[in-house]
Design a protein around this nucleic acid. Structure first.
Length: 561
RNA sequence: UGCCGGAUAGUUUAAUGGUAGAACAGUGGACUCUGAAUCCAUUAGUCUUGGUUCGAAUCCAGGUCCGGCAGCCA
């Protein structure tokens, strides 16, 4: 890892860290943490957050990053998510220094709560949830004190101990910090620290029936772990005064919280609740549907962790709310896949070509480069060539548009790595649709060039009809056609913005080598797009490929003008 | 209407009182056994009004617009 102490910080958080290091604020130490709640799957927005935390820890000596599950709400959390979250973080290429659970700190948190009660800084409140809301006031009006606010320390201690023992039903009492019911910062109007929940926790089982709220658990967990820079998203700015208040009242090690803008991408949603709705309503096939912005979905779509990391780096870290164009993500993915993937030939919309002067029944195996994008990579494979081929329907035009470079009557083009061919005849059905074309080839052009060195304008891909394998090809597009799916008019739901053609399935004719490929392998289908063999449905008997991202298509621009 | 944030090309982000720069997107071209990739060129920006200063994106004041906060969620 590079030593960045001499490099210029790339964002305001790293700038703060550099300053703190220079001033000796935390000794020579930097400690971050990623604190997911194990109640759902990670998406690319989380990747920005944990990427930031883990990367910072890699950028110098004496730096650590913990993974801490924020499991303070037994009703919503499950072990299944714990495992999935760890798997996704590792897939992205990161490893934590320590694995912790906020629930590990329940005993310490309890002791600290008792300490606050003794200091007269916390009290048991018997008000109902509705009453607490009423007493809290509004954004513009101050709240008022609970009638239970001035209970004696002894009574609070007794009641709190009995809350812990399980003597009271859910919702009957809470422990609140005694701060200021008139504060303009609503988080400071005597926030709830503990609620009674007779629920089984995924780790502590039935040991506890009172559970700490986020604000009470989070800063103290950071303190216990010696976190120096507690990074979170902008919606917690309002919580910072409370974060600091607890640490100061407790007089314990004081980490500091810094907030940055979360990641938003056009045509995409990051709301866990809405993503869940898509899964539950069957709009997508699951959390790992290739159209989902979840890391599992993106993995199945064929995105690489490297591409996602590059994308996140390119987006940067700032304090202004923003939405990145989807195109920026696509660029990062193409850029990585371009260097990494072998090129193969697959015809998605087949049109038969008969080479009239090619011997009936003959097959030759032509040598095709696997990595033509790398001049010095000489790996090749053999692809069968025969008299009848499939080409892309788009690669033939009886009446060529301006600047067209593909097959058209009388014009010679190159079949990639094979031969030069010239269209001689067009076969049509009763409705006048082109159903087949005939051509002649030049036997001298084997391998894709001729002894006389003559040039052809176009090169197209092909597969031998006899040897082609049928493959299910899933053409994915953005899940939402609207740039901002959550922007809807009154009374409408975000689902009105769903893209009706986010998935189109076709049966393609692919070169035979693709049947044997391992699930998860990535390719460029030449002149078309990047694809990945589906991780769950692909098999040699039934090949399935998912489109990761299309190639840039400058012909589309030319053709539309 | 209280408090807290924020505002730089179409988008994201640099510039911390001294030449407003990059990436993506766009446009034009070169090259090409992928109309890909690559290369070259190019369009385009400091929310506003004042103030401080030799000099302001940056500091100060007012305004405008956008976002967050009233869970016993995180």
């Amino acid at each position: 890892m590079s030593e960045t102490t001499t490099e210029k910080p790339t964002d305001f958080i790293r700038a703060i860290i550099a300053e703190d290091l220079a001033s000796g604020k935390n000794g020579n130490r930097v400690a971050t943490r990623f604190p997911p709640e194990p109640n759902g799957y990670l998406h690319i927005g989380h990747a920005k957050a944990f990427g930031l935390n883990f990367s910072i820890a890699q950028e110098g000596p004496n730096r650590t990053c913990n993974l801490r599950f924020d499991d303070t709400n037994p009703i919503k959390e499950e072990d299944e998510y714990v495992d999935a979250i760890m798997e996704d973080i590792r897939w992205m290429g990161y490893e934590w220094d320590n694995l912790f659970f906020a629930s590990d700190y329940f005993p310490q948190l309890y002791d600290w709560a008792v300490q606050l009660i003794k200091a007269g800084k916390a009290y048991v409140d018997d008000l109902s949830a509705d009453e607490i809301r009423e007493y809290r006031g509004t954004l513009t009006e101050p709240g008022k004190n609970s009638p239970y606010r001035d209970r004696s320390v002894e009574e609070n201690l007794d009641l709190f101990a009995r809350m812990k023992k399980g003597e009271f039903p859910d919702g009957s009492r809470v422990l609140r910090a005694k701060i200021d019911m008139t504060s303009p910062i609503i988080n400071l109007r005597d926030p709830v620290m503990y609620r009674i929940l007779h629920a089984t926790h995924h780790r502590t089982g039935d040991e506890w029936c009172i559970y700490p709220m986020y604000d009470w658990a989070h800063g103290q967990s950071d303190s216990i772990e010696g976190i120096t820079h507690s990074l979170c998203s902008l919606e917690f700015v309002n919580h910072r005064p409370l974060y600091n208040w607890f640490l100061e009242e407790l007089e314990i090690y004081h980490p500091y919280q810094y907030e940055f803008a979360r990641l938003n991408i056009t045509h995409t949603l990051m709301s866990k609740r809405k993503l869940r709705q898509l899964v539950e309503d069957g709009v997508v096939s699951g959390w790992d549907d290739p159209r989902m912005p979840t890391l599992r979905g993106m993995r199945r779509r064929g995105y690489t962790p490297e591409a996602i990391r590059t994308f996140i780096d390119n987006v940067g870290v700032a304090r202004a709310n923003s939405t990145v164009e989807f195109a920026m993500l696509e660029h990062a993915v193409r850029d990585d896949l371009n260097t990494v993937t072998p090129r193969v030939m697959a015809v998605l919309d087949p049109l038969k070509v008969v080479i009239e002067n090619y011997p009936v029944g003959q097959t030759e195996w032509v040598e095709v480069p696997d990595y033509p994008q790398h001049a010095d990579d000489t790996r090749t494979r053999k692809v069968p060539f025969s008299r009848e081929l499939y080409i892309e329907r788009d690669d033939f035009a009886e009446v060529p548009p301006r600047r067209y470079r593909r097959m058209t009557p009388g014009v010679e083009v190159r079949l990639f790595s094979a031969y030069y061919v010239t269209t001689t005849a067009v076969v049509k059905d009763a409705e006048g649709n082109v159903v087949e074309i005939h051509a002649t080839y030049d036997p001298e052009s084997r391998g894709g060039q001729t002894p006389d060195g003559r040039k052809v304008r176009g090169t197209i891909h092909w597969v031998s009809a006899e040897h082609a394998v049928d493959a299910e090809v899933r053409l994915y597009d953005v899940l939402f056609s609207a740039e901002f799916p959550e922007d809807v008019t009154e009374g409408q739901d975000f689902t009105v913005n769903l893209n009706p053609t986010s998935l189109e399935t076709v049966t393609a004719k692919v070169e035979p080598s693709l049947a044997d490929v391992a699930p998860g392998s990535r390719f460029q289908f030449m002149r078309n797009a990047y694809f990945v063999a589906d991780s769950t449905d692909h098999s040699a008997e039934h090949p399935v490929f998912n489109r990761t991202v299309t190639l840039r298509d400058s012909w589309a621009k030319i053709a539309s003008n």
